[in-house]
């Protein structure tokens, strides 16, 4: 089998349309993960055992099971218990939850990365807890969290092909369909790989620049 440019050209519009869906899925999934991760982290940090224990167990459980199994469970098993979700909704919620647990760990590490002495300085200046978080702790935790947050943005993007298994019309799903229609697999799958590459690489580069810019803005000259 040899590469046929005219076929690649012919399927390009459908591939690009599917790329839009892939980006949408990654964007929505990441947004859910970023917010949910914050809530999970706060849930783990509350002093109330009735809240922090179940949240901790949930995070451990989700982190220790594969995303694909979770997707199948939410999409195929949950309906048998009366929870019927569309492929998109099931996919976004599952990816959001799965990566939300990872991000909650990123946030936790970032908060713990701010020295305890910063808390003491704030207390000695009589700041309230809220103000301490807002003005001193979070601004210092953010640059620590940024590399991890960036990694999971690229990570979510690269895991969106799993959504093909439950029927979300993203890139992989479209390539599968094209292959089934035409019996040509070389061009669709090569294009999928290439599209992922040309989006992932600049994103990773942009994230690294962002990290450096944030460090500079905070007067940290070590970067």
């Amino acid at each position: 089998m040899e590469w046929r440019w005219e076929f690649a050209w012919e399927i390009l519009p459908r591939m690009l349309w599917a790329t839009g869906n892939t980006l949408l899925a990654a964007g929505v999934g990441y947004t859910i993960a970023v917010v949910l991760g914050l809530l999970l982290m706060l849930g783990q940090r509350t002093p109330y055992r009735l809240i922090n224990m179940p949240v901790r167990e949930l995070v451990e459980f989700v982190r220790s099971t594969p995303l694909l199994v979770q997707l199948f469970f939410v999409f195929f098993v949950a309906p048998q218990f009366g929870i019927k979700l569309s492929a998109w909704t099931a996919g976004m919620l599952t990816i959001g939850l799965h990566f939300g647990t990872y991000l909650s760990e990123v946030y936790r590490g970032a908060l713990e990365g701010v020295p305890k002495s910063q808390w003491e300085a704030c207390r000695a200046l009589n700041f309230t807890t809220g103000y301490t978080y807002r003005r001193v702790i979070l601004p210092q935790a953010f640059p620590i969290a940024l590399p991890g947050m960036g990694n999971y943005l690229v990570g979510i993007f690269k895991d969106t092909p799993l959504l093909a298994t439950i029927g979300v019309a993203e890139l992989m799903h479209t390539a599968n369909a094209l292959g089934a229609e035409t019996y040509r697999y070389l061009e669709p799958y090569t294009m999928v790989g290439f599209i992922f590459l040309i989006i992932s690489l600049p994103t990773a580069l942009g994230l690294r620049r962002l990290e450096a810019a944030v460090a500079r803005a905070q007067g940290n000259t070590r970067h």
Partner: peptide
């Protein structure tokens, strides 16, 4: 909170806010 401002403290490791 209503009384702590009567006391000020300087630390061995300075503990300045590095982002300010």
């Amino acid at each position: 909170h209503e009384r702590r401002s009567k006391i000020g403290m300087v630390f061995q490791q300075f503990n300045l806010f590095p982002h300010m």
